[in-house]
Design a protein around this nucleic acid. Structure first.
Lengths: 220, 220
DNA sequence: CGAACGATTGACCAGGTTCAATCCACGTGG
DNA sequence: CCACGTGGATTGAACCTGGTCAATCGTTCG
């Protein structure tokens, strides 16, 4: 199977759809490619679609009146964003831009609402996605308030190493500045966090991370 | 109409239910009273119900391994919490406790899922609640990262004054330490924020707030 | 070889937390 | 009616984390 299609089907959205709804929805997907830095949609813009990331990374941002910008979330392949516009709105509450060259599947909001009328699994899948995104965002608040930068970084590294299953050595999936945004830090802040962790069981060589002592790391 | 019932009917959940589903669900509600400090449910506990606040305030908390505790959200009358357990789970991802004496309507998760099979407006209402809570939580992240304590306090005061419509003078609906938690601050931090705002168009007398210059306040 | 860009490092600063002491308002009991 | 105790709120001082700004380093790519 086409790897993009596989990613789509494994997303939290599609994995909860009926077979029929999945194929209908997949058929209605608009595949779009963005280059790093491209705007996908702007905060306050009328919402017409939501997305599933197939390749690359997307940054969701919030801009305040003063012009300052914060990253709210970094979406990876398989992640869904903008789905809350199915029931809230009418304008996007955050902006989305390509954090790397990326490929998205876009879904027309009205069309999905329509499909939901005929197939109940659509609402079910949407609720799963909403719940998942809500929990992830709550985690983010908790993480911000409870843990320091090195602790958050350590947690991320342990989590990712786990997923990669390459005991102890793996490569960051993206630039460090993106990781910084993901953890709610500046690049400088991330750098210092790495520096500190070097004394606590990890070695860093560019994007390559080696966890030398996961126990020590866990105890941060 | 009984004021508690009115609050329930105006909640984001019930305002999107069909008349029939609303009355069925209201009939199945379990009314419970908690005293300040009572635990409503614990983090990691098996989830059996979700709640709508009818009176008083509820604090949602996250505890980490080290024992440190952060407030994730303060729920007011009309707010819904724990609804994400309808599709996620199986254990609560946060704890809930009464921040004041309070009255809640509790709904059995399994019963609501069952009701949803017969009445589509249930899933619709749940999606609305999830979307709303997701957006509020995203706001919280953005607020934390973009604004300082005095800015967040100023925004809260302007928002609340707006809602109260008593031009310029109103009372905080709860203790200041609760407001601090709501804004993600310590009580000391809130105190200092108030102190600073006194130079910028507001006067504080216990729980009573007078906004003397809303323009000045807005410009913080 | 040089330009460009990401990453790192250092110095400095601001915002918030923590801890401790004090203040204040309120309710209780003498 | 007043003294006292309690709990929330405030204030001050020390500290810490992380952001900002600027300079430097290292790599990659032209």
């Amino acid at each position: 199977m086409n790897p993009d299609l596989a990613t789509l089907m494994h997303s939290a959205l599609f994995s909860h759809l009926s077979r029929k709804a999945a194929s209908t929805l997949a058929g209605s997907a608009l595949l779009k490619t963005y280059l790093e830095g491209d705007v996908i949609f702007r905060q306050q813009e009328q919402a017409h679609f939501f997305c599933v990331v197939l390749r690359g990374y997307v940054r969701l941002t919030r801009t305040c009146d003063s012009g300052r910008i914060a990253s709210l979330r970094i979406c990876e392949p398989g992640d869904v964003f903008g789905e809350c516009m199915l029931r809230a709105g009418p304008t996007y509450p955050y902006g989305a831009e390509a954090a790397e060259n990326c490929v998205l599947a876009q879904f027309d909001l009205a069309a999905v609402r329509k499909l939901a009328e005929d197939d109940r699994s659509v609402d079910d899948a949407v609720m799963h996605v909403l719940s998942q995104n809500l929990l992830a965002t709550l985690n983010c608040v908790a993480e911000d308030r409870l843990h320091t930068a090195p602790q958050r970084l350590a947690a991320y590294l342990l989590r990712t190493a786990q997923a990669e299953r390459r005991q102890g050595v793996f490569r960051l999936p993206f630039r460090k500045s993106l990781l910084a945004a993901k953890l709610g830090l500046t690049p400088e802040g991330l750098s210092r966090a790495f520096a500190l962790l070097k004394e606590h069981g990890i070695a860093v060589q560019g994007r390559t991370i080696r966890i030398e002592d996961s126990e020590l790391l866990r105890s941060i």
